[in-house]
Simulated scan of single mutants.
Amino acid sequence: MSVDNTLITPQTVGFGPVTRRVSEVHPPAYTPGYKTSVLRSPKNALISTAPTLSEITGPVFGENELGELDNDLILNYSKSGLPIGERMVIHGYVRDEFGNPVSGALVEAWQANAGGRYRHKKDQYLAPIDPNFGGCGRMITDSNGYYMFRTIKPGPYPWKNRHNEWRPAHIHFSINGDAWAQRLITQMYFEGDPLIDRCPIVATIPNRDQVQGLIAREDVANFIGMDSRTYRFDMTLRGRAATFFEDHIPGARR
């Protein structure tokens, strides 16, 4: 069964409104060019249900749940030295569908290393594992909805969607806002990458503005001299301007 959450208003639950996902600005769940969507796309019409109280009032995260280096992917897995690759800072703001900052949101990130390989037992790409790079981190947004982390720029990698296709360099994000109904899982790409326009996953997105919303921009004013380039990437939870929910299209079966 597939579910599409409907609008919840302050009058019905006594909390702030959570709008439904606007499915028409997202790609259809069934997109044969992206092969795995064929099996996981819903075959029947979506069923609308009202979110429960627990879905719009939690979760709550505290700073004491994070380690000192959780948002520093350069150091948080270092064993015998520093990881190999281009050093960078990623930062930005998490906002709700009305443009308000989402404070206390848990932002989790994971990625391939500079060679394009994940630290995962099922990743069999021939690029070597970097012994000093774990590829994952997490942080909590401040009162302004701001987040920041340091990392190594991930490399592109081949995948078995069709012959000789490559994924652009990207970083995965999972965001838990101030309501479970705001959960967002997405991917961030990098400005100027020619593989973006050739990616079958990106090609499923019908709205060019949505594609642009997945691309981090160079933030030259915040480069760190002789150290790191900086990229700005803002994310919006739900509503018409929502950042594309890329990893799991709403309503699609896993």
Score class of each variant (00 low, 15 high):
I129G: 03
G135T: 00
H163D: 09
G177M: 00
L53V: 13
Y189G: 03
W180V: 09
N132H: 03
W110T: 03
A169L: 06
P156M: 04
I152N: 06
F61Q: 05
T9H: 04
K121M: 14
D123R: 05
L82P: 09
I129F: 05
G62D: 10
Q111W: 03
N100D: 13
P158Y: 04
P10D: 01
A181P: 08
A50H: 08
Y93D: 10
M226Q: 09
K35N: 12
P128Y: 01
P131I: 00
L46C: 04
T230Y: 02
F98H: 09
P156V: 05
F190T: 07
R40K: 14
R162I: 08
I152W: 06
E246P: 05
T141A: 12
I74E: 12
Y118K: 02
T186Q: 02
I47S: 13
A241G: 08
D209H: 06
G16D: 13
P131F: 04
L7E: 13
E246H: 09
W159Y: 11
I205C: 04
E191N: 11
I249W: 03
H163C: 07
P17V: 00
L195C: 06
T236M: 07
D4H: 14
V22I: 11
R232Q: 11
P42K: 06
R240Y: 14
A109W: 10
T243S: 06
T230V: 01
R138A: 14
I84T: 12
D197T: 08
R117H: 06
K122A: 13
Q182S: 14
D72P: 11
Q210T: 05
P83N: 03
Q111V: 08
R150K: 15
A112M: 02
A181E: 12
A241K: 09
R167H: 15
C199V: 04
L39N: 10
D247Q: 11
T151L: 09
E63I: 07
R232Y: 08
G16E: 13
P51S: 07
G225A: 14
V89F: 01
R40Y: 13
Q182C: 07
N64T: 15
N71E: 02
R217F: 00
G145I: 01
V89D: 08
G99P: 08
P250Y: 01
V107T: 01
I224D: 07
V94Q: 02
I196G: 06
E108R: 15
P158F: 03
G135P: 07
Q111T: 14
L69R: 07
G33S: 08
T6V: 13
G192A: 12
V18L: 15
G16S: 12
N5F: 15
W166T: 05
W159R: 07
H170V: 00
G58T: 01
K35M: 11
L214C: 02
L73D: 00
R162M: 10
G104K: 06
K122Q: 14
L69A: 07
N161R: 03
W180R: 15
M235F: 08
P250T: 01
Q210D: 10
I8W: 01
D96W: 04
K160I: 03
E24P: 13
I129Y: 09
Y157D: 01
K43W: 12
R21D: 14
S2N: 15
A221L: 15
F61I: 03
I90F: 05
G85A: 03
D178R: 15
G99D: 06
P206S: 02
